[in-house]
Design a protein around this nucleic acid. Structure first.
Lengths: 135, 135
DNA sequence: CTTGGTATTTAGAATAAGTCTAAACCGAGA
DNA sequence: TCTCGGTTTAGACTTATTCTAAATACCAAG
């Protein structure tokens, strides 16, 4: 993927292609891992002639998320919440109210009729025991 | 729910029922919200004759999770990861390796055959737009 | 009862991801 | 060239959670 094609992608998404944004976006579009902001910083800082600030990495990643170029993946808890409901169920967070809704696991196939708009399916937590098979 | 029945539950799960643990477990088993550790502290500290430390709340909640009395619900990011894959898909985290596996959304119904043991279905992220309907 | 040992609780320090701030910088137009 | 808005920067700040080391409570054996 060339630098200028990454620039084109940024422009298409309404993001001004600064050198910092271009190298970060290029890295994000090429990698198939799910890097943290710090991992992005490590991977990308050598690609720039100037020092790259941690704040710029966060700013840029947030900009790219807002522009729809990349997506956030929540993997660990900042604010862990706890739940005494031990049945298999999903958690859905209303983007507007923050309210958490429990959905029994067997309803996963019938989700959309339960929901209106502006609703983010946030967390699907069931614990299986075992290992990933090779694909 | 009586204090002594909460004690019984703790004992059944192999947890020594200290006063702090009993009031925290009682609150967790009675509430249907998804409180944070701080919210638990606020709700529970007046129920004890002595001061309740924040560390004790965290210790106790972790103890209850380990014992299988309650479960963690991840709602916000501590370590946000980013992903350029914008197709609808799920994220599964291998508990052992930490490796994240993408699963296309249409495979949700056929999950278990893909997985072995020791595998935690961690995050299911699809954005719908709309609002929660009253239930 | 004592004593001793282990588990628990405590206050406060430490950690770490992410945001904020204020100054410096840059590039496009007048 | 000058100016202005947007961008980047270093470092301070915030906040959830964990760590630490001391104090306390509890139980078992003498």
């Amino acid at each position: 993927m060339t630098l200028s094609s990454v620039e084109d992608i940024l422009i298409e998404h309404g993001v001004k292609p600064t050198p910092q944004r271009v190298v970060i976006a290029k890295y994000m579009l090429e990698t198939h891992s799910h890097p943290t902001a710090d991992e992005v910083l490590q991977a990308v800082e050598s690609k720039l002639p100037v020092a790259l600030s941690r704040a710029t990495v966060y700013n840029t990643l947030n900009t790219l998320v807002q522009a729809g170029v990349i997506r956030e993946v929540v993997t660990e808890a900042e604010r862990t919440r706890y739940d005494a409901n031990m049945t298999e169920h999903h958690h859905f967070v209303d983007v507007k109210s923050g309210k958490i809704l429990d959905i029994p696991a067997d309803q996963i196939a019938h989700l959309k009729p339960l929901l209106g708009n502006n609703f983010k399916v946030h967390s699907y937590q069931i614990t299986f025991f075992g290992e990933v098979k090779d694909q």
